[in-house]
């Protein structure tokens, strides 16, 4: 029993250096996730500021409308379709590497969700905080930066963490545009060895370990920030 398990590990991962498929795949998955996350945060941040400024003051009408259309389109269509459109339609002749196209697509997608998360955080801060900042002489932007956003971001940290986890797992559809990500790596091994169980379970475990590690780090960060106050 144990011997047969060892044989299968040997056959699936060691022979022909097939573990490299997983290692390279993991590298691509992480690259896509990290860059998509950064892009998503930047986009989400900007949209959230525009949207909540509009909600609070009634200005930025046109920009707000633009943001709303963006949110509707991104949230109303599947991420896989968006990825395919990015690859085959929009960025087809740019000569960008596939991984770059993928993280742009995932970043654009994630940005829509991050925007609504951050906006909910901003809107959850009592208006008195805003008035206190303004009454001291801070302008709108300074009040946002020094007073509202630090509180808002702390409040939405769990939701942002959740979005990061979703993003990490979502990159598994990158195989559709022939990117060798972690999922694709496992699938390639399966097609070589005709053993579905070992490579796919291994891939699942790697995702799980990454998510658990991240969750743990996030809860430590949250506790730190709370301790600051009470």
């Amino acid at each position: 029993m144990i011997q047969s398990l060892m044989d299968r590990i040997q056959f699936n991962f060691i022979d022909g250096d097939r573990w490299v498929y997983l290692a390279d795949g993991l590298k691509n998955t992480l690259i896509m996730t990290v860059f998509a996350l950064l892009l998503g945060l930047v986009i989400g941040f900007l949209i959230a500021i525009v949207r909540s400024t509009h909600d609070k003051t009634g200005s930025l009408r046109v920009l707000n409308l633009f943001c709303k259309v963006y949110l509707t389109v991104i949230r109303g269509t599947p991420v896989l379709v968006q990825l395919l459109i990015c690859y085959f339609v929009i960025l087809v002749n740019t000569g960008l590497p596939k991984v770059a196209i993928a993280f742009i697509a995932f970043g654009l997608n994630s940005g829509a969700y991050v925007a609504e998360i951050i906006r909910s955080g901003i809107m959850s801060i009592d208006n008195g905080q805003f008035e206190a900042g303004r009454s001291l002489g801070f302008n709108y932007v300074q009040t946002m930066i020094f007073i509202i956003l630090p509180q808002a971001l702390k409040n939405v940290l769990p939701a942002l963490g959740n979005e990061f986890i979703v993003l990490l797992k979502e990159t598994s559809v990158a195989g559709y545009i022939a990117i060798a990500d972690l999922t694709k790596g496992g699938d390639i091994i399966r097609s070589r060895t005709f053993d579905a169980f070992m490579p796919l379970i291994t891939v699942a475990i790697i995702y799980l370990v990454m998510v658990l590690t991240f969750s743990k780090l996030l809860s430590i960060l949250e506790r730190r920030l709370r301790n600051n106050e009470r």
Partner: peptide, 29 residues
């Protein structure tokens, strides 16, 4: 904003900044 710096305001619900210490609340502006 310039003129507000010369007009201090105290609110019914205090509106202190909860993420800053008392000292920071006072020194940031």
């Amino acid at each position: 904003n310039r003129h507000r710096q010369k007009m201090g305001m105290v609110f019914q619900h205090f509106n202190l900044f909860p993420h800053m210490t008392v000292l920071r609340n006072m020194t940031i502006a």
